[in-house]
Simulated scan of single mutants.
Amino acid sequence: MYINWVGTYLNVPKIPVKVVTFDEIVEWSRKLAEKIKESNWQPDVIVAVARGGYVPARLLCDWLGVSDLLSVQVVHWPSAAQIAEKAYVKYPINVDLSGKRVLVVDDIVDTGDSIELAKKSLEECCRPKEVKTAALQVITSVAKFMPDFYAVEVREWIWFAYQWNAVEDATGFIMKIVKETGKTEWCLDELIQAHLEWYGSEYVEKRFGYMLYALDMLVKRGYIKLSKCLASPNIAVR
């Protein structure tokens, strides 16, 4: 699908978005597993940083032959492209990991606060032999904490739209538009146009169904109103 739209929201904050495919996730996790193997270090237990680390951690269990998988939840990004003031451990774990080599896994490291907090939490409560960290991607231009292992280096900040939070992203993006513009009543054409100009055509084309799903939820919950468009914009779809 190709959309050509003459925009009207020219003075809006642009957020670069990259839609990540599941094939890319599998390939990155394989590459990450190979790097861990090449280091001659083998974890006994893998701990996912919930929630983004669940799928990468499970894939690493498969690639590395690890059967013990736990999770700790660290809250850092309350909604899409919106950062909390301070990361904190919401749901820690408290199990005896004495003598165990532990690998803490997240999907992406931006500042690194989440994975660093998870690592410290495990070291303080669970008495592991050793804790190392890993992520599929690292945004090196903003990272304050670098994981021990990572598959992909990202040099400039971008919002990676993973499959496991597609509806959550769509909801957050819509509400960001509502908040920034102060406009709570939209026609669908206007909202699509705003998405194109804020988040780009790739996001709109690949996540259009999720946008509609999220919009329906937000309308039913009273966060946004839909009106009939008075005039149709210049759209070409193929």
Results as ranks from 00 to 15, higher is better:
Y88W: 13
E24V: 02
A151F: 05
E197I: 07
R51M: 12
E124N: 10
E197D: 11
S121I: 02
R221H: 13
I83F: 09
V74E: 05
P56I: 07
L196Y: 09
S39Q: 06
D148I: 02
F149G: 05
D44V: 08
C125R: 14
W198M: 10
P233M: 04
I158Y: 08
V74L: 08
W63K: 15
M211W: 13
R207S: 07
G53I: 02
W5E: 10
G99H: 12
M175E: 14
K120T: 07
Q42T: 13
V72S: 06
G209S: 08
W77P: 00
K228Q: 14
V72K: 01
V75K: 12
A57Y: 03
R58N: 10
S114V: 07
V75C: 02
Y162A: 08
W5L: 14
A81W: 10
G52P: 09
S232R: 15
V167D: 14
T133A: 09
G182P: 07
K144W: 02
V178I: 13
V131N: 07
V66P: 05
L226N: 00
E185W: 05
E202S: 11
A161P: 00
N40R: 12
T111I: 06
W28N: 10
S201F: 09
A151G: 03
W41N: 09
S39V: 01
E180M: 08
K129I: 03
E24I: 03
W164T: 05
L117W: 01
Y223S: 06
C187W: 04
E34M: 09
I235S: 03
L10T: 13
V19L: 02
I93N: 03
L64V: 05
K176D: 15
G112T: 04
G99R: 09
G172W: 10
Y54C: 05
G53W: 06
H195T: 11
S29Y: 06
M146Q: 12
A87W: 01
F145P: 03
N40K: 13
W63D: 13
Y2L: 14
K35D: 09
H76K: 15
L103S: 01
P56N: 09
E168G: 11
A80S: 13
N94M: 09
V72P: 04
L136Y: 05
L32A: 07
K31Q: 10
N4D: 15
H76A: 14
E38I: 01
E34F: 04
W159F: 15
E156W: 07
N4R: 11
D96S: 09
T181N: 04
V55D: 03
K35Y: 07
R127D: 15
L230D: 10
I108N: 04
P147H: 05
